Computed example of a mutant assay.
Amino acid sequence: MTAASPLPSAGVMMVCLLGAVRLSPAERRPCPCPVIPAWPGTRTPPEACRQINSTFRYSCLDGRVRKAGTSNRIRCELQKGNVQWKLSSLQCIDDPSRPKPPATTKSTIPTSSRMSRSSAAHDGEKIVNTDRKLHDAATPTTVKPWEVETSTFSLVASGNQTREAHSGGSRTATILSVLLPMAIGALVVIGYMLYRRRSRKNTEEEEEEEEEQEEAVPMVPQGELPP
């Protein structure tokens, strides 16, 4: 029985050593390919251990499809000692066969309709204000002479001022409507008292003159004529 020659065994060992030397550090790793990069409009790629020259296909999101002429396939390649994924040309677009939702659902009401609603609301407010004015006009009120000027001032102020100013004008008008009659009443009472005093004084003077005239005329006995 002849002994086996050691040359073939040595050759196999040399080939294995040379192959180990030629492998780059990236190729020696158990999972040389990096994480698959995310792509716009596609699902998130799953994490898995992948080897060099392995491939992966992106999947577009629901409602989107791959655009014709683009590829969703990428390959893990070794280039100049670096392992990387070859960039994809994939473009995900809206599915043309899928019905599209109605556009601009927020502004479904036409502008003319909105304007008509606004005009109707404005007209309704005018009608309410008119009814209120008619109701106030139908209510019987006693208008005093000294309140005419105050009422006129209140109407002018309510037409030119804001609600806050109108509130202040109403307060002022209320105060004036209370103080003005009191002042006029006081003046009337004072004038009446002065008139009564002057009338009484004139009456007393007339009575005194009549008494003086009666005293100045001499008493003539009956049946005799004055000289």
Rank of each mutant, 00 (worst) to 15 (best):
M1H: 12
T2D: 09
T2R: 10
T2S: 11
A3Q: 12
A4M: 10
S5V: 02
S5Q: 04
P6H: 06
P6Q: 08
A10D: 02
G11E: 02
G11Y: 12
V12I: 15
M13Y: 04
V15M: 07
C16S: 14
G19W: 01
G19N: 03
A20K: 05
R22A: 15
S24T: 15
P25S: 09
A26P: 02
A26H: 04
E27P: 01
R29S: 10
C31G: 06
P32E: 04
C33R: 00
C33H: 02
V35I: 08
I36Y: 07
P37I: 10
A38V: 09
T42Y: 05
T44A: 12
T44G: 06
P45I: 11
E47V: 06
R50Q: 10
S54N: 08
S54W: 00
V65A: 07
V65T: 08
K67C: 04
K67H: 13
A68P: 06
T70E: 02
N72K: 13
C76Q: 05
C76F: 12
C76T: 04
L78A: 08
Q79P: 00
K80C: 03
K80L: 01
K80T: 12
G81C: 03
Q84K: 13
L87T: 15
L87E: 15
S89G: 10
Q91W: 08
C92M: 03
C92I: 04
C92V: 02
D95K: 07
P102W: 01
A103R: 13
A103W: 03
A103V: 08
T105W: 03
T108R: 06
P110A: 08
T111E: 10
T111V: 14
M115Q: 15
S116H: 13
S116N: 13
S118L: 14
A120S: 11
A121M: 11
D123T: 11
G124S: 14
G124E: 09
K126D: 07
T130M: 15
T130S: 11
A137L: 14
T141C: 04
T142C: 10
T142P: 01
V143Q: 12
W146G: 06
T150M: 13
S154D: 14
S154Y: 03
S154E: 14
L155W: 01
L155M: 07
G159L: 15
N160G: 08
N160E: 10
R163M: 09
E164S: 12
E164F: 11
A165H: 12
G169N: 10
A173G: 13
T174W: 05
T174K: 08
I175G: 07
L176Q: 11
S177V: 01
L179T: 15
L179Y: 06
L180I: 15
P181E: 14
G185A: 14
A186E: 10
M193C: 06
M193I: 02
L194M: 05
L194H: 02
Y195C: 02
R196V: 01
R198E: 05
S199V: 08
E206C: 07
E206V: 09
E209Q: 08
E211V: 04
E211D: 05
E212H: 00
A216C: 02
V217H: 00
V217R: 03
V220I: 13
V220W: 04
P221C: 01
P221Q: 03
Q222W: 05
G223T: 01
L225W: 12
